[in-house]
């Protein structure tokens, strides 16, 4: 394995959890719900994945556990905001705080325990190809899942009737209701999808990124995922680009630091954030693009007048 291969592999590893969480949140926001609890759902997913994999010895069962843990957290959010009309911003923040605390409590016994690593899939012939074999065809299942989710989400949102309904609910919930669509049901399903994706992102962290349990190991990735959705102006293909851009910059700055570049390390560590902010500013300058893709009902509670 040469240096380039290693670089690309680490970039994929750094980008995948962001991509998983962001694509889920994109669907949630397209339906008009702002769930700021991504970080919380992610870390609960991470501890569930680690714990179940540790106990059963099966990383795949860990992945399934993370998925359900993420969904459980999102159902809590959904009940509070969609059924009980709690404020979405406050509830999302509370969900993050809850997730961080809960995972710390559950994971106390796991600190320092050896973890299970999610195995790379070995595809006959393809995986043995030089370069592309190791980069493209020897990844674990979650990397493939993240790419498949982007393609699937794009197809769902822009090619299927259900996706059209979801976008309609996010654009104008009053009209969608008047046409006879169940706004709450559509949003609830979207929120659960977001939870599942955040859970998978957590599983990737504790089973593939660093196969061990460390308290607070999401380290703000949930927030980055939220920013990426805006950065991508709610388009799945741009979420893919954004996640990999952020992943690439954060890995490259490590290498630059290691190479002894004469820039303070604090500034270098800030590079991915700076790059994201700058791209965000440039993107949001295009008013029409933002306007046509921003879900107009984002964050607004829906109260049916029936």
């Amino acid at each position: 394995m040469n240096g380039f291969e290693a670089l690309v592999l680490t970039i994929i590893t750094a980008s995948t959890p962001l991509l998983l969480a962001a694509i889920g949140e994109l669907v949630v926001e397209r339906s008009g719900v702002l769930n700021l609890g991504v970080e919380g759902m992610m870390i609960v997913g991470a501890v569930a994945a680690f714990g179940v994999a540790h106990v059963t010895g099966s990383p795949l069962l860990g992945v399934v556990a993370a998925l359900f843990a993420g969904v459980a957290m999102s159902v809590l959010f959904g009940v509070l905001t969609l059924n009980l009309m709690a404020n979405q911003v406050a509830t999302g923040l509370a969900l993050t705080i809850l997730g961080l605390g809960l995972s710390g409590m559950i994971g106390e016994g796991f600190i320092g325990e050896p973890g299970q690593r999610l195995a790379a899939l070995h595809i006959p012939v393809l995986s043995d190809l030089p370069l592309v074999g190791s980069i493209v065809f020897s990844q674990d299942i979650l990397v493939y899942a993240s790419i498949a989710l982007v393609i699937g989400t794009y197809h769902f949102l822009f090619r299927t009737r259900s996706g059209l309904i979801l976008r309609a609910v996010g654009d104008n919930h009053t009209s969608a209701h008047a046409l006879g669509y169940s706004v709450i049901k559509v949003r609830f399903l979207a929120v659960m999808f977001g939870g599942a994706c955040a859970g998978l992102a957590g599983a990737y962290l504790s089973l593939a990124y660093t196969p061990q349990w460390v308290e607070g190991m999401t380290a703000g990735r949930g927030w980055i995922a939220l920013a990426l959705v805006v950065f991508a102006s709610w388009r799945p293909n741009r979420v893919l680009i954004g996640a990999y851009l952020f992943g690439a910059v954060s890995i490259l700055q490590f290498h630059a630091q290691a190479a002894g570049i004469g820039v303070p390390s604090q500034l270098m560590s800030a590079m991915p954030y700076l790059a994201t902010i700058i791209v965000l500013i440039i993107i949001s300058r295009n008013v029409t693009l933002t306007k046509t893709n921003t879900p107009a009902c984002l964050g607004k509670a829906f109260v049916p007048d029936r």
């Binding site: 009737r161 059209l164 309904i165 976008r167 309609a168 654009d171 104008n172 009053t174 009209s175 969608a176 008047a178 046409l179 669509y181 046509t292 893709n293 921003t294 879900p295 107009a296």
Partner: peptide, 16 residues
Amino acid sequence: FSLFEALTVVENIALA
């Protein structure tokens, strides 16, 4: 109007 501004004419009609 109960239209969806971010959608096209045909998408708006398909929803109904």
